[in-house]
Amino acid sequence: MRPGELIASDRGARAGSADDLSQAWSVLGQVMDPEVPVVSVVDLGIVRGLDWRDGHLHVVVTPTYSGCPATEVIEQDIQHALEHAGFAAPQLERRLDPAWTTDWISEHGREALRAYGIAPPAGSTSKRSLLGESPEVCCPQCGSAHTEQLSQFGSTACKALYRCIDCREPFDYFKCI
């Protein structure tokens, strides 16, 4: 390094504004979850916060669970979307505490899941499921509550496979976590 050169992490550093944060939230609202491409990372609730640190946008991300195979892809998608929108070298922080919960999915995200054919989490997270109580899962196709679980695991580990007794359609249910 020669005198006067910037350290690579300092390139593009600038003071941020409230408008920049608003724009960043808007950009992230367009970054879709790779496993459920109709729900943004904002609506999924995994983007926990945005602020400015050392002249760069700082993004806090909490994966849906610590072993989620899509975590690195999501972080890369966030990084690329922000860089494409003009945010130089955004800094991502993966935060596991507090753990993500399905309670963080927005109403818009829940409706998007339903429209896509995935039953959104029923109710909120609780310990009742540990005691054997099953949630009332409504069919995303016809709205019937007359459904049955076929498997505890659906297309991904965070979903269960259900079937509607009325319309006979199988569907994924996004488990309460």
Results as ranks from 00 to 15, higher is better:
residue 156 T to W: 11
residue 51 D to A: 09
residue 143 G to S: 09
residue 128 R to T: 13
residue 92 L to G: 01
residue 3 P to I: 11
residue 101 T to K: 06
residue 43 D to H: 09
residue 127 K to I: 11
residue 57 L to E: 04
residue 41 V to I: 09
residue 61 V to S: 10
residue 149 Q to D: 03
residue 166 D to T: 04
residue 119 A to H: 09
residue 160 A to D: 08
residue 102 T to D: 02
residue 156 T to G: 13
residue 150 L to E: 11
residue 168 R to G: 08
residue 158 C to P: 03
residue 43 D to Y: 01
residue 7 I to V: 10
residue 77 D to E: 13
residue 101 T to R: 14
residue 95 R to F: 05
residue 89 A to N: 10
residue 116 Y to M: 04
residue 73 V to Q: 09
residue 79 Q to V: 00
residue 23 Q to D: 13
residue 93 E to K: 03
residue 80 H to F: 02
residue 1 M to P: 02
residue 73 V to M: 01
residue 83 E to Q: 14
residue 33 D to V: 03
residue 124 S to P: 06
residue 166 D to H: 07
residue 54 D to H: 13
residue 56 H to G: 03
residue 140 P to Q: 04
residue 175 K to R: 10
residue 175 K to P: 11
residue 172 D to K: 15
residue 112 A to N: 10
residue 129 S to H: 10
residue 131 L to I: 06
residue 75 E to Q: 05
residue 90 P to A: 04
residue 69 P to N: 06
residue 40 S to T: 11
residue 93 E to F: 02
residue 130 L to S: 12
residue 162 Y to A: 04
residue 18 A to R: 15
residue 142 C to P: 08
residue 21 L to M: 13
residue 82 L to N: 00
residue 34 P to G: 01
residue 168 R to C: 06
residue 13 A to P: 09
residue 72 E to S: 10
residue 131 L to K: 02
residue 86 G to D: 08
residue 34 P to H: 13
residue 30 Q to M: 11
